[in-house]
Design a protein around this nucleic acid. Structure first.
Lengths: 246, 246
DNA sequence: GCAAAAGTGTTGGAAATACACCCATGT
DNA sequence: ACATGGGTGTATTTCCAACACTTTTGC
């Protein structure tokens, strides 16, 4: 519902023209999208960052962002930006939160919508390396431009929550992975240690892992089995209901 | 990060002026906030709706919304709109999701940020009733203007999820409430039936309810005890960790 | 006394946790 | 042989679900 409320102005039965002029009057702001792209490598959770374009923030790190075009759907903008900055598409992409503090951008009023995405670092070698695009440890990343630290934190928290309730983790791993890799992923993202045997029992009892009958190669110890995640089985079984718990 | 990416344009070391003009060029859109205000009355989940201002949508229902002012923080806009439309402040207000389809608003490009809020219907009698503001059953509400049904659904789903993990429900009830009222609330919001004894056990074992030593009045049956929610205890004990479960 | 909801305990099964040993491979 | 991590089983506990009867009040 769109209304400019000045005192006692009538609210009923506006024409489209009235509202159009209100929109025109009020649109002194720009909208952008920032993508927080997580990856997993060397047992660490990583995030893709570039160096800020902006002199004011020279040398500081920035998320992958861009303005949304006036005739572009919000989600489409997020996918476009991901593609432009990294050359990647075909990724899970989720809207997380919108940041709209008046002074968050020095160039004027820019409200930004944060999106979050997960990439398999091994399978998606970056082809576009402008602005020093590369992977950074999430835990140790500092020196952000704008409010991008805050945005990253919000996306990281969302990721931690989502990965406990949805099988997102598999997007960060090779198609075939060992249980050790899977556990390392969970331990890294959630920042906890888990019991190896119970972790296995958990995942096997979920019954979403398919044994590929292949083994790890070139590991300096006994090789583990490789598994695939079975999305079809998951789709059929997925849960609707968790109990009340807080 | 703000960049208009036209082919091979240099991305390094932009001046603030460059970006300012990019922002000015691109801001042919407006931003609005829509508030989804849930209440609970007569054992039903309710939502506050008005009749749409817009001729095109005459007679159809609309959420409480307004444009965001250029010099207004996003959250502040949400609180302002809630206040203006209902006379209420002092409410829990949570950003839910941003809706940015190009054609979602007939007056032009209007991206809207949905906020969600919970009101105790009994304690907050509405003083502003412009545009036929009143409570509607969430389940049976139809005939929405814009994409407001979609927005409502998103907020309702978020509410269902949040109420299972956070003690939000108490914002919808009187300060002192019976366990029956609490259970009715959960059953209405989550659309399930629960076992009364297990429900009680659950809440008592959480140990966040304080017995007020008062009883229900004027009920046509045996009166139940009234409880308060103990926020202090909750703040101390709240959980950090749920297991992996999907 | 009767209708309506309050209040209360137990039991069985499922899932989570804690925990220790042998195995396969590379060096 | 040894170091490294793979692979497995069991006992304990905790949590959840299912379930029925007695009590208090208003009418």
């Amino acid at each position: 519902m769109i209304t400019i409320t000045n005192g006692k102005q009538l609210r009923q039965g506006k024409t489209l023209q009235t509202i159009q002029s209100e929109v025109a009057e009020t649109n002194r702001l720009a909208l952008s999208v920032d993508c927080v792209i997580f990856g997993f490598d060397e047992n660490k959770l990583k995030v893709l960052l570039i160096r800020s374009d902006l002199k004011k923030y020279e040398g500081r790190y920035s998320l992958l962002g861009d303005l949304v075009y006036p005739a572009e759907d919000l989600d489409a903008a997020a996918y476009r930006i991901l593609k432009q900055r990294t050359g990647l598409n075909d990724l899970y992409l989720e809207q997380v939160q919108t940041f709209g503090a008046v002074d968050r951008h020095p160039a004027g009023r820019v409200v930004t919508v944060a999106y979050c995405s997960l990439v398999n670092v091994q399978h998606h070698k970056l082809k576009i390396l402008e602005n020093e695009l590369h992977w950074h440890d999430v835990k140790s990343a500092v020196d952000f431009a704008f409010d991008h630290k805050e945005i990253l934190d919000a996306c990281y928290e969302r990721l931690q929550k989502r990965i406990q309730e949805h099988p997102l983790g598999f997007n960060l791993l090779p198609k075939k992975f060992s249980l050790r890799e899977l556990q390392n992923l969970y331990e890294a993202i959630l920042d906890v240690k888990m019991d190896r045997r119970n972790f296995r029992k958990k995942f096997f009892s979920m019954d979403f892992l398919t044994d590929t009958n292949e083994m790890e190669q070139d590991v300096p110890h006994r090789p583990g089995k490789l598994y695939k995640f079975n999305y079809e089985k998951y789709e059929k079984k997925k849960k609707k209901w968790f109990g009340i718990d807080f």
